[in-house]
Amino acid sequence: MLMLVVTAAVLGSAGRPAAAERCGLVASGQPDPFGLMAQLSGNFVPPVPVAPVKRSSASTQSPSPINNPWNVFNRQPTTLDSFNAFQQIMTLLGKRRKRQSGLYEQLTRVRRETEAVKARVRRIVGGYDAIPGQLCWQVKIQIGDVRDETICGGTILGSRTVLIAAHCLYNSETRRRISDRNVIVVVGGMNRDVGEVYGHDTTGCAEPFGIQQSIVHPNYNYDLNDNDIGILILNRPIDLDHKPCACSACLTARTPQVAEWCVVSGYGEESSDGSNDRDPVPLKWTQLQIRHQDYSGSCAFNSFPARGGFGGQRTNLDLFLCAGAQKWEDTCQGDSGGPLICLDPVKKTYYQAGIVSFGDDCGAGTGGQYTRVAAYIPWILANTAGDVTVDL
């Protein structure tokens, strides 16, 4: 059974440790909810990647345009689509990668950016459907309105604090900040529809929250993705003492080691183009291995040619963790901002090591990049007014 080390004898009204002292403890009652504890005994069995089975139109309900705002990109793009997308990309100075050069690589970039024009976000491919309480720190963040909505993930760190990727809070076409009034945080939802007017909460525990303030790291770089971290301050507290579908992940200075296995989660696409999605898409999780960080191409990164306005700059990989690279197990469009969660081997609790930031095609075999949370602890504490504590 999961054991939690309580660092302060602060008890709630029910005689149990207060919410801040129970971080990283799942509410599903599972002794090893993600299979990560087997790493401690050397018995961990890596997931076996399985190629996704294409769903036939006869057996799959087509999502409505409202339910799937990326629906336009699920059809075969025309030459005009690619041309228009390329114009937008060049205007926006969107993501570039060192390996993308020449005509074939340029067309590949156009296709990738066409899929990303509506939102620079990522989602889960492969993995497992979550059960209630298993991912109690995960939230869904609805950005925009019913006519033009995108989705990101986020992580509960305190009763009024949610950690998110900075890029989720920007309009990808205008590069302007999204208004706080157009951001809704949904706690406890078990599928992507929960929180929408047409959604159905099967647990009776899900709850939407508005935000009082959004905070983006002052050194966030939209083009390189450096410092891709933000904070949402909710307009009222989550009842972490009595809400079984909500909990906080631990915040700690620990960083996972290369070859260690961690967990990512989200509500997103189940394939790169969304054609394999169920309706509604469930909250899912998968195990990813931490990889050696470098510019060899085994991990994604953004770069610009020396002749461009950015003078040969590229993503500062010291600010990220690289994870994944096994085929068909990955984050993908829509998981952006969600948590990379690892197991503390001493306390046997779960802490947030990373934030889903960016990567190449979903499940293609290249490691994705996750903002290294431990590097930002002083900034997080300075902007959360005592709502978040560090699990020492």
Rank of each mutant, 00 (worst) to 15 (best):
G127L: 08
I143Y: 00
E113H: 12
T114G: 14
Q134V: 01
K118P: 12
I151F: 10
R120L: 14
A119T: 12
I143S: 06
V121K: 03
G144A: 08
G144Q: 07
I141C: 01
K140Q: 12
R112D: 14
D148Q: 14
I124W: 09
E149F: 07
Q142T: 07
A119I: 06
L135A: 13
Y128R: 14
C152G: 13
L135M: 13
K118I: 11
R147F: 13
T108W: 10
D145G: 06
R120Y: 11
K140T: 07
T114N: 09
Y128T: 15
I124C: 04
T150M: 09
E149R: 15
T114V: 08
R123N: 13
D145K: 05
A116P: 00
T114A: 13
G153I: 07
I131V: 15
L135D: 05
I151E: 12
L135W: 05
T108P: 01
R147M: 14
E113Q: 10
T150N: 08
T108G: 15
G153W: 01
A116L: 13
R109W: 14
L107C: 10
D148K: 14
R120A: 11
G133P: 07
V110K: 01
A116C: 10
A130G: 05
Q134E: 06
I151A: 02
Q142G: 09
A119K: 07
G126M: 04
T150Y: 04
